[in-house]
């Protein structure tokens, strides 16, 4: 690990409803409309992959492996990760939507086989907004975690991470291997170029049935109902600064 050259980085790479899609709750409250909507990589996972690629380009790591958990058609999504630059992909196949604890247990199984020096994941997926899987994985693996990363530096088997926290920027140092989750300002992911899409076709994707991993995958949480959020109604327009101030004073807000 000290030399770094043998280090492998595992990247969690989830597919979600594209962030530009306006989410509609189904009228019967059984879910949100996902038929025919555009799916994309979770934006925080693209940042995770970009960071892993940069660490490889710096010579800190040798191999970048993207991991996805999902149905058979997840292959196309994983190909995007390969086109972005990952060396290979692992597809854990399941038709179920997995909850964070299950995802963490699955990732731990892969880690036991792959022995990565670092795991980088998005801090949250923009569908369930759970913000849990990286932390849970670090706990189960009994390794350090550094969430909400905006800067990552690796030297001598240790990683120094700057974290965006409510109070400001926290810096911590951890021994490798470790789990890092990414925040928005860590980097700007690269765009996929056409030749890379061609190249990605020959990169390997390992396929593993989730059921074959013997993890406890049962859902502890049941979602019973979906509703649309309450909407704020459109307010009034005022014509100038003095009218605004008098309205606020009337309301007792100033």
């Amino acid at each position: 690990m000290a030399k770094g050259i043998e280090m492998k980085i595992l990247v969690g790479y989830k597919r979600v409803v594209d962030y530009n899609v306006r989410i509609q709750v189904k009228p019967d409250g059984t879910g949100v409309v996902t038929d025919g909507v555009k799916l994309s990589a979770n934006p925080f996972d693209d940042i995770a992959l970009e960071e892993a690629l940069r660490l490889r380009e710096k010579g800190v790591a040798e191999e970048v492996v993207v991991v996805g958990i999902g149905p058979a058609d997840l292959t196309a999504h994983l190909r995007n990760g390969l086109a972005m630059g990952a060396n290979r992909a692992i597809h854990v196949v399941t038709s179920d939507i997995v909850q964070p604890l299950t995802a963490a247990r699955v990732l731990l199984k892969l880690i036991e086989k792959e022995l990565p020096g670092l795991v980088i994941m998005g801090k949250q997926a923009i569908d369930d907004d759970a913000n849990q899987t990286g932390q849970m994985l670090a706990a189960l693996w009994d390794r350090p975690q550094a969430t909400f990363a905006s800067k990552i530096e690796i030297a001598d088997g240790k990683v120094t991470v700057t974290r965006e926290v409510d109070a400001g920027l926290e810096v911590l140092q951890a021994d490798l291997p470790a789990v890092i989750t990414t925040d928005l300002r860590l980097n700007e992911p690269r765009f996929i170029k056409l030749p890379d899409i061609m190249k990605a076709k020959s990169k390997p994707i390992d396929t593993i049935e989730l059921a074959s991993l013997s993890v406890d995958a049962h859902d502890q949480l049941k979602t019973t109902h979906y509703t649309a959020p309450g909407k704020r109604s459109k307010g009034v327009m005022v014509k100038d600064a003095s009218e605004l101030v008098s309205v606020l004073k009337q309301k007792g807000l100033l």
Binding site: V17, I23, V32, I126, D129, L221, T224, H225, Y226, T227
Partner: peptide, 10 residues
Amino acid sequence: YAGNAIITVE
């Protein structure tokens, strides 16, 4: 979904 849906969880 960034507050665009609210779920009831048991």
